[in-house]
Amino acid sequence: MANSQRYTREIPHRFRLEAQKFDDGFISLPNRYISPISGTRNFEKINLSGKGTILSFTIVHTPSDQFKLVNPYAVAIIETEEGARLTAMITDTAFEDIKIGAKVELIFRKMMQEGLSGIINYGYKAIVCK
């Protein structure tokens, strides 16, 4: 659950996959001041294409309350074609089609909502490409 101010500041990353590419090649999806690889502070802003590959995944059967409406669901660690790593829920995909190495594409979906009257949280999820 993210309240409106916490949610709003992450929008460029979650909606448009705005990332930082450091000059040592490391790509960070949330903002960082410094690369964890080489310590360089030089980077350019890039937008990830949203295409990637599953490095690992699991089917979550016991979510926190905020995700109970989509239970059970799959979560994966994905490496994008640019080489960035991120974690995303997998949606619109039969569990048997989710495999390590499967190609995915990120799409815009509703993640959760703050109860009945709070804000709706949107973000990226992945679909396994057929």
Partner: peptide, 16 residues
């Protein structure tokens, strides 16, 4: 609509 879809996520995909 899927459980994580609403008219807005549908609009976003169509607009893309």
């Amino acid at each position: 609509p899927g459980r994580d879809e609403d008219s807005l996520t549908i609009a976003v995909q169509a607009a893309k």
